[in-house]
Nucleic acid binder design. Sequence first.
DNA 1: CAGGATCCCCCAAGATACTG
DNA 2: CAGTATCTTGGGGGATCCTG
Lengths: 141, 141
Amino acid sequence: MPEFLADCRARLAFDLLAHTWDGVVLWALRDGPCRPRELRRRVGGISPKVLTGTLHRLRDSGLVSSRRHREAPPRVEYALTPLGRSLLGPLEALGAWAAEHGDEVARAREDACAARLRAGTTPASPAPGRAGRPPSGGRSG
Amino acid sequence: MPEFLADCRARLAFDLLAHTWDGVVLWALRDGPCRPRELRRRVGGISPKVLTGTLHRLRDSGLVSSRRHREAPPRVEYALTPLGRSLLGPLEALGAWAAEHGDEVARAREDACAARLRAGTTPASPAPGRAGRPPSGGRSG
DNA sequence: CAGGATCCCCCAAGATACTG
DNA sequence: CAGTATCTTGGGGGATCCTG
């Protein structure tokens, strides 16, 4: 057992979901095998390149498998491996938590933001923001 | 209910743990209030600046609270809020999963890496890597 | 001792063009 | 239609110095 939390095994799970789309793509595969095109539709807002990268990373971690059909129009299907399916449980727990407490988080963030405005200081932390440009509302058309 | 997973409420939870140290710091606070200095010791490998940033972000999300004692040597204590404590459950689920399946992930990654070497291609995905410089192996003691 | 300010590095992710 | 290569951008994280 590691002395520092940074080396804790739980850290592995965090890193597994570290990239923006990892969790969402995993979740999108819960209903069964899926082609990239369809995945993009389900997820919404993810670029082809990033989807490929995410899928390959998840595959390299053993969470996802891929099947290539050698046809004229390339056809590939991605699916969860048993290992990947076993992660759905914890993911669900996270989702359930968000469903139950999401409002509280949102409210807390608004409060913090308001308080900061009142203080007239610089944000310093855009709250939910992450790297890149999450589609936090980008899809309106 | 959002049509796209990218807008799903679960996404909120993912984003909550999006930053490198969020989960670990949350976990480090599970045993009770703690001062930054002690937190750094427990976590291991986190810089003071980043710890402050992490703490403030978590505070702005309502997961953590802070108490300032106005003394000559500044003294601050951070603690989980009830909301933050409620996240420990899902976090624990994630940790338990990692404890049980971590080896499989590690093995899959090694396999993928080996296969890639055999193919003589460029990595394209450093596997577990993330932004910054995670102490993935810095402290091997 | 807490934490703000600053500088630097690097990678995730977007956009686009091209290949199979 | 799947996947890669290239360029660009934005911000997280590390290190250091400085203030309250």
